[in-house]
Design a protein around this nucleic acid. Sequence first.
DNA 1: GCTCAGCAATTGATTGCTCAGTAATTGAGA
DNA 2: TCTCAATTACTGAGCAATCAATTGCTGAGC
Lengths: 160, 160
Amino acid sequence: MDTAKRENDEAARAADSPLVHDFGLLIKAATRLEQRIDTALRKECEISHTMFEVLIRLCRHPDEEISQRRLADDLTLTSSGITRLIDRMEGTGLVRRVPAPGDRRSVLVEPTGQGRTVFLRAAAIHASVVERYFVAPVTPADYGRLTRSLGEIEKALRDA
Amino acid sequence: MDTAKRENDEAARAADSPLVHDFGLLIKAATRLEQRIDTALRKECEISHTMFEVLIRLCRHPDEEISQRRLADDLTLTSSGITRLIDRMEGTGLVRRVPAPGDRRSVLVEPTGQGRTVFLRAAAIHASVVERYFVAPVTPADYGRLTRSLGEIEKALRDA
DNA sequence: GCTCAGCAATTGATTGCTCAGTAATTGAGA
DNA sequence: TCTCAATTACTGAGCAATCAATTGCTGAGC
């Protein structure tokens, strides 16, 4: 059948387009990098990369707790995802839930002392992996442009 | 306690480092973009983004089937992950398994006619989302450098 | 030719998320 | 002041991945 053959060719062209290729690169680089960090953190610190992302937010401003809602938005998780993640982190003593002063629906989260200690060890591991596979492979000039572009892309997604 | 206070400050600095921030941007941009594509493809074509990634590989070279092993490596899935993914795709008639001529351990996968048809529709959706949120937000010059950098990063991860 | 270490795919059990639905709380407008 | 739509967290069910263990097959070295 001729139409089948033409569809084959069309599909082959679509599958080979630069757009597909370039975007594939982004996805692959990001997932490989995240996997590498995740396994390193699990081995050395017994936490997942997701937990690390939570600790980053909690430690950033030492005297300002963060609501679960905000964490969910920041990590692109659903509210139920965050509930269970914080459950696990509370269970292993990394964080503590505290009621929100002004709003009784909301729950604030803060790191425990142990949480901060683990975070410091984890941050060192994180930095070394990121340094090696994210920073080192590109020239300093390109690195600046890379992060700027990623910022633009993230902004476009956020605004939409 | 003084040591606790110092640990607080140290953690705050680590959590605010440019490295952490920049890498966070990559992860966030990639996951948001992938989510957007995934929901669009699910709504319009009833396939997941992961299935789309499989179809890309299968349609790229029309007369060369691809082994599950290769697909798993390419998509950064485990072999068991690929087995179940292909199960589902075979179940909905998108692909077909065929025995590998030279090696009876290996299973090759090829797209069905329906698989190619769905792929063509999906590719159009994919292109429009990628165009809008990945290409449009950066200048053409930066886009070239962006993909080059991502290529370098991916290469570094692959080599290691 | 035989053995055996290694690889491909599969399966059972588990993990970590989503979705849909629920309960408590809030704040804006009649 | 009261009502009600929106918002927060949580829960049960389900899904898509992982890990660990198994089976069948292959090829290199003796």
